[in-house]
C-alpha cells in the first residue's frame, strides 16, 4: 500500500491504495466518483479520460502512485459549482453545448469526450475541424458518428470565446 496525496476536483485527499492500482479505479472505488467510465481498459477508447495537472490522460493507464501530488479533474469537477454539495446549478458551456446539440447519445463516452474537448479548447480556443478531429481521435463514440460532437465542440468554442471577450 502507498499513501498518495491527490487533489480531485479541487479537494485534496490522502488515500491508501496499492501503488499500481489504476487511477481509474482509485477515482471510482476510493473517491467514489463514478462519472469516469471504463470502456476498454487499454487506453484505446478514452472513456476514462481525465485531466491530470491540466493534461488529458487515460486514467486506466495511470498507476495510482503517478497521481501522487497531482491535481485531477474528472467530469464531476467540470461544472462550475460542482465542488459544493448536490447537483450543480449551471452546466459548463461545453456540457451545455453537448446537451443542446446532440453531442451525448448513450452518454458512456461523454465524460471522456467532454474532458478531451476541455483540453482541446485550452490549446486551441478556435479549433479547425481538423484540429477537433485529431484532438478527439482518442475518444471513441459508437452512437453519434461524431458529427453532433463536432458541432457541440464548435458551439462550445464560440460560447467560451464570447465569455472570455
Amino acid at each position: 500500500m502507498s499513501t498518495i496525496q491527490i487533489t480531485i476536483n479541487g479537494t485534496s485527499q490522502s488515500l491508501d491504495v496499492p501503488p499500481m492500482k489504476r487511477l481509474l479505479d482509485v477515482l471510482r472505488e476510493d473517491a467514489h466518483l463514478t462519472g469516469t467510465k471504463e470502456g476498454c481498459g487499454e487506453g484505446e477508447c478514452g472513456a476514462c479520460a481525465v485531466l491530470m495537472n491540466g493534461e488529458l490522460v487515460n486514467s486506466c493507464l495511470v498507476p495510482a502512485l503517478h497521481a501522487d501530488g497531482a491535481s485531477v479533474c474528472t467530469i464531476e469537477g467540470v461544472a462550475p459549482s460542482a465542488a459544493a454539495e448536490g447537483e450543480p446549478a449551471h452546466l459548463h458551456p461545453i456540457q451545455q453545448c453537448f446537451f443542446e446539440n446532440g453531442g451525448a447519445q448513450c452518454g458512456i463516452c461523454t465524460p471522456g469526450m467532454i474532458l478531451a474537448t476541455h483540453h482541446l479548447l485550452d490549446k486551441y480556443p478556435n479549433p479547425t475541424l481538423e484540429q477537433i478531429k485529431e484532438g478527439l481521435a482518442g475518444n471513441l463514440c459508437r452512437c453519434t458518428g461524431y458529427m453532433r460532437i463536432f458541432e457541440s465542440v464548435q458551439k462550445a468554442a464560440q460560447a467560451l470565446t464570447t465569455i472570455s471577450t
Binding site: G46, V57, L61, A137
Partner: peptide
C-alpha cells in the same frame, strides 16, 4: 503515436 491522451504520457 496513439492519441493526445497517450502522447501526454
Amino acid at each position: 503515436t496513439g492519441s493526445v491522451a497517450n502522447q501526454n504520457r
